[in-house]
Nucleic acid binder design. Structure first.
Lengths: 135, 135
DNA sequence: ATGCACCCTCTAGCAACTATAGGGTCAAGC
DNA sequence: GCTTGACCCTATAGTTGCTAGAGGGTGCAT
């Protein structure tokens, strides 16, 4: 399997696969006579794993860790759970942060579409001194 | 006001202020005899504006746009509303994406803390072929 | 033999900073 | 008067996770 086929099979760009190789997530595969990378089913599975983990928002460092853990199938899986739980906590923090942003923005938007910038609630929110006092 | 004082007053790192200057968000201020940047109240207000906008998740490009709009106080503020609304939409998309990640992760976590990696639901989710079939 | 799709390496670019190296300035204390 | 320390300066490289480009080689069909 050439790199382009692997790319299509995993919905990954060719450059990204080469990047993962450089980043140590995929081992350098054997090469053909023409110096083309040649992949087998193992690499397809490994890359699918990586893509799924990335889709779930794991960082490349976390993916590396998960790959190492997944390779040692007799280990207790508390370590896997720890990586995933800490990632879940990160996601929940991000959601909370974004929700707060959303609420603040929503509170401010709408109601000045027809006014002038000088009276705009959005600008006043960003520029509280001028909006509130002398100007 | 020296750059360090401005940094403390706006809860910004000194390097970030210099970065904003290079990025065109803050004008190059006058210098003292010793070549130190010297800021006044205008820059304090402008940097506060930038920080607030950044806290609300606006990109530097969006901040640049908002600053330009805020400077022209007689313009209708539909343009400001457009920037903010489009940003709100982006935030809502991010929240939706993260919420989906959170749900998928939460579904998978817990229940294998005591098992082995070979039976781990998290790993199986990432590695569906092996988990489901022959191995 | 020539066109075309595909592959190769190496390097630079993106956002938005952060950190480091290698220096200069300024006020205080001895 | 000289050193110590906190602060400032520029310029450059690093961070994350790719993506895009230059400048070339390979392999197959026409």
């Amino acid at each position: 399997m050439k790199i382009g086929e692997l790319a299509r099979a995993t919905d990954t760009k060719v450059e990204t696969i080469r990047y993962y190789e450089g980043a140590g997530l995929l081992a350098p595969p054997p090469r053909t006579g023409g110096n083309y990378r040649s992949y087998g089913t193992d690499e397809l599975l490994r890359l699918s794993f990586i893509r799924r983990a990335r889709d779930l928002g794991f960082s490349l460092d976390e993916v590396r860790e998960l790959l190492a853990l997944a390779d040692d199938r007799d280990q207790p899986c508390g370590a896997v759970d720890a990586v995933a739980s800490s990632h879940l906590a990160t996601i929940e923090r991000k959601i909370a942060d974004l929700s707060q942003m959303r609420d603040e923005l929503a509170r401010v938007i709408g109601g000045c579409r027809l006014g002038k910038v000088g009276d705009c609630k959005i600008i006043q929110t960003l520029e509280p001194m001028r909006g509130a006092s002398h100007n």
